[in-house]
């Protein structure tokens, strides 16, 4: 019953986006409730990243509407958008750490630039956030180039949660990691999201990871949302596309478009 009472955090309505003649999002709908963790699954090139970047304001959809807390983000001014971004955290696929800054400056970037915290205080917070993701204080002064893939992801996660956002996005958090490190990152993600009470949106094609992170799963295929449901109903979705995807079957309704 609580589900009915929970207010909507992010909503995408009938979003279309095409690059030239290539249609990526073709009437995509999505709803994320407050405090909920939604995972978008789908093959490569199915438009997962585009949907996420549209919410973040990095891309502008051709038509449709995207609202956060009921307010349309598409018509927002630049400064209102920046204010909204203070509430948003994002973990990029390859962490996208600034390589001109060291680890702690990366982690506390939003605190120093956005909230104008003095460097000494910002460093303390950075070290605290690093310990949250299981990194020791010695890492703080290293440069991103010295880090391994798993460590980069952790630093990226620490940066995404440093300013305590209530909306967090994860772009393929486990891609490029070994299965054990992937599991560890998943646990960190669920832990951080739960601690912050944040709403989370993850895109991935790693099913093991999706099952660990998600409250609800939605599948994106050819620019449309073809199935949405709680994670425990994933195995008996009754949808042949979902069935093929989560079991990684070569035979099924999904045709691999090699040209994408």
């Amino acid at each position: 019953m609580t589900e009915i009472m929970t207010p909507t955090c992010i909503e995408m309505k009938n979003v279309h986006k095409a690059f030239g003649s290539k249609v990526v999002l073709d009437g995509f709908d999505l709803e994320i409730k407050k405090g909920e963790s939604v995972v978008i699954i789908g093959g490569s090139g199915s438009g997962k990243s585009v949907s996420l970047k549209s919410i973040l304001g990095l891309l502008t959809p051709d038509s449709g509407d995207i609202t956060i807390d009921g307010k349309s983000v598409l018509s927002m001014s630049g400064s209102a958008r920046e204010k909204l971004n203070n509430r948003v955290g994002m973990l990029f696929q390859n962490a996208a750490l600034f390589d001109s800054l060291n680890v702690w400056e990366n982690v506390s970037f939003a605190l120093m630039e956005g909230e104008k915290l003095p460097r000494k205080k910002a460093k303390e917070i950075a070290i605290e956030k690093l310990s949250l993701v299981g990194l020791s204080p010695e890492v703080a002064n290293m440069s991103p180039a010295e880090l391994s893939g798993g460590m980069r992801k952790r630093v990226g996660l620490a940066r995404a949660i440093a300013h305590e956002p209530d909306i967090i996005f994860f772009d393929e958090p486990t891609t490029g990691l070994d299965p054990i490190m992937g599991h560890v990152i998943d646990d960190l993600i669920t832990h951080c999201v739960k601690t912050l009470g944040a709403s989370a949106l993850t895109i991935t094609h790693d099913m093991a990871s999706a099952r660990r992170i998600a409250d609800r799963v939605t599948m994106l295929y050819q620019g449309k949302n073809i199935w949405t449901g709680p994670v425990d109903q994933l195995d008996d979705s009754g949808n042949p596309y979902v069935h093929q995807f989560i079991n990684g079957l070569a035979e099924g309704p999904i045709e691999l478009d090699i040209s994408r």
Partner: peptide, 17 residues
């Protein structure tokens, strides 16, 4: 390099123009 490694996108999501 910052563009292709998404660092410019990251700047924007961290409220920095």
């Amino acid at each position: 390099t910052m563009r292709v490694t998404e660092q410019i996108d990251a700047l924007q999501t961290l409220s920095t123009n």
